[in-house]
């Protein structure tokens, strides 16, 4: 395949950044998108340049490391995949491809396509867990969970924390990420005790980190590689409302 590739290059957080153009050779349709970037990097290295920095690890769509905006869409043109699961068969000979990092003030660019997503960890620290000490659990089957609830909890828990939802949102909101964790735990009996404190705590940190508000665009759901539903955002908002009406404060 003959392609023209425009990749965002930025040497560090303070650099302005610019697109650099490559015309890679030897690309085939069965290659993954990241195999293609590997090949470009191999050429850059042998020619004495500095390779494109991008994050990746498992390369099977589960670790959430990779993430890039391809032709204006987070994770590229295919639905329900991460960038590492995208294959070149999704493109045509002669295509121009534009590759950019996630763009959001809560995700500062560190280098090229690498951004800092540590704000997601801090949202989890604010209550995205069940407070249970190791060794203090009862027998697992003593907590029956209706199968439909267990399935809903799983659907929400499938989030991989990649940040595509933020990149796609015109407000750079992380409400899809935040609500998915809240919903995972709120569908289960184990998550009830801290349910409202969790909602208040996580959303407070979400706002503090500089993520925008949700104004129901739904762009997040469109790009989410795990198909996480925006319904969880309404669910979280209902919990927030309840917490406000009953005067619940964030947990300590």
């Amino acid at each position: 395949m003959n392609l023209t590739l425009h990749v965002w290059r930025q040497s560090g957080p303070r650099d302005e950044g610019r697109f650099e153009t490559f015309k890679p050779e030897g690309i085939t349709e069965s290659m993954s998108f990241l195999d293609m970037l590997d090949l470009v990097n191999e050429e850059i290295t042998v020619d004495g340049g500095e390779p494109i920095a991008f994050e990746h690890d498992c390369r099977e769509g589960i670790c959430g490391s990779c993430g890039m905006v391809v032709n204006g869409v987070a994770h590229g043109p295919e639905k329900l995949v991460t960038a590492c699961q995208l294959h070149m068969r999704s493109f045509s000979d002669g295509d121009e491809i534009w590759v950019e990092p996630w763009r959001a003030s809560a995700f500062p660019v560190m280098r090229d396509l690498v951004v800092d997503r540590s704000s997601f960890d801090r949202i989890i620290q604010a209550g995205g867990y069940v407070s249970i000490r190791t060794g203090s659990a009862q027998d697992a089957n003593a907590i029956p969970v209706p199968k439909p609830n267990a399935d809903r909890a799983f659907d929400a828990a499938a989030c991989i924390g990649c940040g595509a939802c933020v990149a796609a949102c015109p407000n750079a909101s992380a409400m899809l990420f935040t609500s998915a964790k809240a919903a995972h735990l709120s569908y289960l009996p184990q998550g009830q005790t801290e349910r409202l404190e969790r909602a208040v705590g996580m959303v407070a940190i979400h706002d503090e980190e500089g993520f925008g508000n949700c104004t129901n665009h739904g762009a997040c759901q469109e790009v989410c590689p795990k198909g996480i539903s925006v319904d969880y955002i309404s669910r979280l908002n209902r919990d927030l409302l309840k917490a406000n009406l009953t005067g619940v404060e964030p947990g300590d």
Partner: peptide, 17 residues
């Protein structure tokens, strides 16, 4: 036991177990 108490959503049967 520990994982279930944390909310790990293991597969369940229709009876909830």
């Amino acid at each position: 036991d520990q994982a279930v108490a944390q909310g790990v959503p293991f597969a369940r049967e229709y009876g909830g177990l």
